[in-house]
Structures are given as structure tokens and as C-alpha cells.
């Protein structure tokens, strides 16, 4: 177990999401940055679907009465263990009676903490992911608070090597983010100029960005005759454009239906980049085919396979 001394700005328990209930209006939730969370689990000797802590912008401080094995990946929150720096994108040993502390994100936005053995909270509708708006999953369906106790699951007997991720697999978090987009399903509701603006214009991440979605500022995208559609299904990656022409990229906690035209979808391997975006970062969109998206998925998979064998 470990005790929360300081929770950080927004720290929640997340796994790979609540799949299978979208037809009932239940958002998927789950980790915002699939890549960093998966790597944290691989380094910590867990299944890739194990629940992790997702910390946002400002990390938490935790007390460990007993020894534990952890891994940390994602934004660099300058973690220290009993006052000594720990390396980001690495697994480490926590001796009994230790304090693990994180600070603000020096680069990126979200940091993942994986505990060897996972986090022992009961799944709700098949997932441990916290969805605060419906108060389900994680710890009582809410973000962590001071004095919360996190029960760590039991890992296999086999101890594993404490290692860090090879530099080949380290993503670079920059303030200029490029993501690939497959146009559709309603790209025909935008003018030629509107589509050109999406792929040629420059957008800035606004302060209105959270687990539900990222509102962009900057260029405005023109509709043919208004933004409204008869509400249809939404999922992470969808780029909705309301009447003001400023696109919104839907993220992990997005509602399952929405009524604005969707000009395209950010491919899922690139959502990890958006999960690390902060207000003020610039976003550019590049048009992409199914084939390129499949290649990106395969490359992501290959990184996991290589990281798993060290």
C-alpha cells in the first residue's frame, strides 16, 4: 500500500478504458497517453492493461510503509525518492518507509506511475478507470485526495530487472505538435477552404483542455452551412467544429454522442502527443490514409514488444 500525502493537481487511477458500454452513453475514459502508460506498465513488470496513476501538470507526494517496485513514464515531473532524483522512463525500487515526491511537469503534461502488481481497486463495468462525472471507477470515482490509501496488487513471484527505457523509445515533448488526421465522417459539411485551413492553419491549445477534450484557438474552420448535425457517435480523436470555427479534439472522457460536424479523426497513436500538450502549445494537422495509420499502429506495437524484452 501507499498513502497519499499530497494528491497533486489532478491524479486519478486509470487503465486502458471501459470498453463495451458506449452504446449506453458510458464514456471510455482510461489513460490519456496510451504510450507512456503502457511503457510504465512494461517497465514495472505488469500487464499492459494494469491500472496506473495518471498525474496532471503537478504531481503528488506518496508515503510507502512497505517496499515496492514502481516505474514512472510520461511528462518529467522531476520525481525524487527520499530526496534523491529518480530517472524518468525507468523502473525503481522503493525501500520500506520511503517518500516519493513529484513536482511540476518540466516538459509534457501527464505522468504515469505504475506499481508492480497494479492497483487493487474493484473494476466497475470491467475497468478500474476513474470517470469523475459519473463518480465511478478508481477510488470512489474521484481524483485522489490527501490521506487516501492506495492498495497495491500482488505481482508474480518473479522479480524483474530494474531498467530504464532505451532512448530509441523515448518520445520528445515539444511545444510544436504534429498529429495525423483521417478526414471524415462529415468533412463534406466543410468548405474546401475550411478543410485547407485544418491542414494548413496553425492552432494553439487553449486553457480549456482537460480529459474530455482540447479546445484549440487560432485559425477558424469554415462550414458549408452551419455546424449542427443530428447527434451521432463520438470517440477520442474526433475533431468537432462548433459554430465559431475553433476545433475541439475529443479525448478519453468525451461524451459518446455529439451534435457538431466532425471534420476528421486524429489517429489513435498520435493521441499520446495530444495528452502531453499544454496550453499555448501549437498543433498542426497532417492528412493521413488508413495505410499510414496502420503503419503507425504497427510501429507503436513494435516499440512495446522491444521494450518488453528490454
Amino acid at each position: 500500500m501507499c498513502t497519499v500525502i499530497k494528491p497533486g493537481m489532478l491524479t486519478t487511477i486509470q487503465d486502458q478504458g471501459r470498453i463495451g458500454y458506449r452504446a449506453y452513453g458510458m464514456p471510455v475514459s482510461g489513460v490519456m497517453d496510451r504510450y507512456a502508460a503502457t511503457m510504465a506498465n512494461l517497465l514495472a513488470g505488469n500487464e499492459t492493461g494494469a491500472a496506473v496513476l495518471e498525474m496532471t501538470l503537478l504531481g503528488g507526494t506518496f508515503h510507502f510503509p512497505n517496499e515496492a517496485y514502481l516505474a514512472v513514464c510520461g511528462a518529467d515531473m522531476q520525481g525524487t525518492l527520499n530526496g534523491r532524483r529518480i530517472k524518468n522512463w525507468s523502473a525503481f525500487y522503493v525501500p520500506a518507509n520511503s517518500e516519493l515526491a513529484f513536482d511540476y511537469a518540466a516538459s509534457g503534461c501527464r505522468t504515469y506511475l505504475s506499481f508492480y502488481g497494479g492497483i487493487a481497486v474493484s473494476p466497475v463495468l470491467g475497468s478500474r478507470s476513474t470517470y469523475t462525472r459519473a463518480v465511478i471507477g478508481g477510488l470512489e470515482g474521484r481524483a485522489l485526495q490527501a490521506d487516501d490509501v492506495i492498495e497495491i496488487g500482488k505481482g508474480d513471484e518473479m522479480p524483474f530487472a530494474l531498467r530504464e527505457l532505451s532512448y530509441h523509445h523515448l518520445p520528445k515533448y515539444t511545444h510544436e505538435i504534429r498529429v495525423r488526421v483521417i478526414p471524415g465522417p462529415q468533412d463534406d459539411l466543410f468548405t474546401t477552404e475550411g478543410v485547407r485551413t485544418l491542414f494548413g492553419g496553425s492552432f494553439t491549445v487553449s486553457s480549456r483542455n482537460d480529459r474530455m477534450g482540447i479546445l484549440l484557438e487560432g485559425a477558424t474552420i469554415q462550414h458549408v452551412s452551419g455546424p449542427d448535425i443530428i447527434s451521432d457517435a463520438l470517440c477520442a480523436g474526433a475533431i468537432q467544429v462548433p459554430g465559431d470555427g475553433h476545433p475541439i479534439i475529443m479525448m478519453a472522457d468525451c461524451q459518446t454522442t455529439g451534435g457538431y460536424a466532425k471534420i476528421g479523426f486524429v489517429i489513435s497513436p498520435d493521441l499520446s502527443k495530444l495528452a502531453q500538450a499544454k496550453a499555448g502549445d501549437t498543433i498542426t494537422f497532417v492528412e493521413c490514409s488508413d495505410g499510414e495509420a496502420l503503419a503507425a499502429l504497427a510501429a507503436e506495437q513494435l516499440s512495446y514488444e522491444k521494450a518488453a524484452i528490454g
Partner: peptide, 18 residues
């Protein structure tokens, strides 16, 4: 049948509530 990202497709039956 429309595209909704690399993992999604949408079967669109028309633009009406009926």
C-alpha cells in the same frame, strides 16, 4: 459508409430523425 478514424466507420442512413 464513412470513416471515423482508423478504428471506426459510420453507416449513415440519411439526415433525418425518424
Amino acid at each position: 459508409i464513412l470513416k471515423a478514424g482508423e478504428k471506426g466507420l459510420v453507416i449513415d442512413f440519411g439526415n433525418l430523425i425518424d
